[in-house]
């Protein structure tokens, strides 16, 4: 595939994001939520990296920190060779238009008092890309591209359905001609029959415009469908990352295995014969994560070593990385 060139667009090195929890109104910062803790990965130009995990695992925080909606606590984010993780806002400005985001909730992420044209045009104005007639033409072209009628530019978001709103969100993200788009659960608020429409459109746009995606979702079947590579997160840590076929066919981390086996398969015979690994209990609090391997409290293979030392990422073959003491 031509998609698979080896140029790396984004590299994340030892990224950490801690959120302070203040106790009392006078006392200092006593505790930290370790939302993302020492995560490293890269994304090649033109590929889609899927990021999966359960709620609270830090997948959205990772995305938001990369795009600098949050400032990283530690670590580096390298975008096209430049370290942007600790840049000042004025230095960051030219990078802002190279990175865009599509949000989960198409009802909350569009300003209900602005017309669709102004929602899409706002970024064009901020980056001084076009004015007047040219600006309008860009907006019409974008609406056309995402399968909406250009006449819809004068309407307000409430006049559209969920799927159409998500298309508006996508058009907005494309307005500044970005290279990289973070899709944070872009389809989970949509109906099943509409999800496929949006996913197909994202794939088409990627092929046409050479976009790079970070696709964050908890729907593992959809992530496998759209991603070239997939990373699995648990409690702020990246536990396994591999090519998507490899990860789904040959998961090595016990958490990935459990996660994959818990997905209900829409095929009754397969579903009946499915061997499920049912995990006991819940995800521990990220305020006070377990020592050593964070998954050990729910892992059926846990050994004394797992409590003592934190497993490091190992290459188990062909770039398939996994962090487990069993390997």
């Amino acid at each position: 595939m031509s998609k698979k060139n080896n140029e790396i667009l984004i590299e994340v090195k030892n990224l950490k994001k801690y959120f302070p929890i203040r106790k009392g109104f006078l006392g200092g910062e006593t505790q930290y939520v370790q939302a993302v803790d020492d995560v490293s990965f890269f994304i090649r130009k033109g590929e889609t990296l899927g990021l999966v995990g359960e709620s609270g695992c830090g997948k959205s925080t990772t995305g938001r920190t990369i795009i600098r909606l949050y400032n990283p606590t530690a670590g580096e984010v390298i975008f096209g060779g430049a370290e942007i993780g600790h840049m000042k806002e004025n230095e960051l400005h030219p990078f802002r238009k190279k990175m865009q985001m599509i949000f989960q909730d198409p009802y909350a992420s569009l300003n209900s008092r602005m017309t669709v044209g102004d929602i899409i045009g706002e970024a064009i104005d901020i980056h001084n890309l076009a004015t007047g007639k040219e600006r309008l033409e860009i907006i019409h072209e974008l609406l056309h591209r995402v399968g909406l009628n250009p006449d819809h530019a004068v309407r307000y978001p409430h006049e559209f359905s969920g799927g159409q709103r998500q298309r508006i969100g996508i058009a907005r993200s494309l307005a500044v001609r970005p290279e990289f788009i973070i899709c944070d659960e872009p389809i989970s608020a949509l109906d099943v029959s509409i999800q496929a429409q949006v996913v197909n459109m994202l794939e088409d746009l990627q092929a046409e415009l050479g976009l790079t995606y970070l696709f964050i979702a908890h729907d593992l079947s959809m992530v496998r469908h759209i991603s070239d590579r997939v990373g699995v997160m648990y409690l702020g840590k990246l536990v396994e990352i591999a090519d998507s076929e490899e990860l789904y066919n040959n998961p090595t981390h016990p958490y990935t295995q459990a996660l994959l086996s818990s997905i209900p398969i829409p095929d009754p015979e397969v579903s009946r014969s499915q061997q499920r690994i049912i995990l006991e209990g819940d995800v521990p609090s990220p305020l006070n994560p377990p020592s050593g391997c964070r998954f050990r409290t729910r892992c059926k293979y846990a050994m004394p070593k797992c409590a003592e030392a934190e497993p490091i990422m190992k290459d188990v073959g062909g770039g398939h990385m996994s962090a487990c003491h069993l390997l």
Partner: peptide, 21 residues
């Protein structure tokens, strides 16, 4: 049935959405 991706199958096909709303 056609619009959902299948985790248990290996071939990757383009999804077939139901058009319209």
């Amino acid at each position: 049935l056609k619009s959902i991706p299948r985790l248990d199958l290996n071939e990757k096909k383009r999804l077939v959405p139901i058009e319209g709303s």
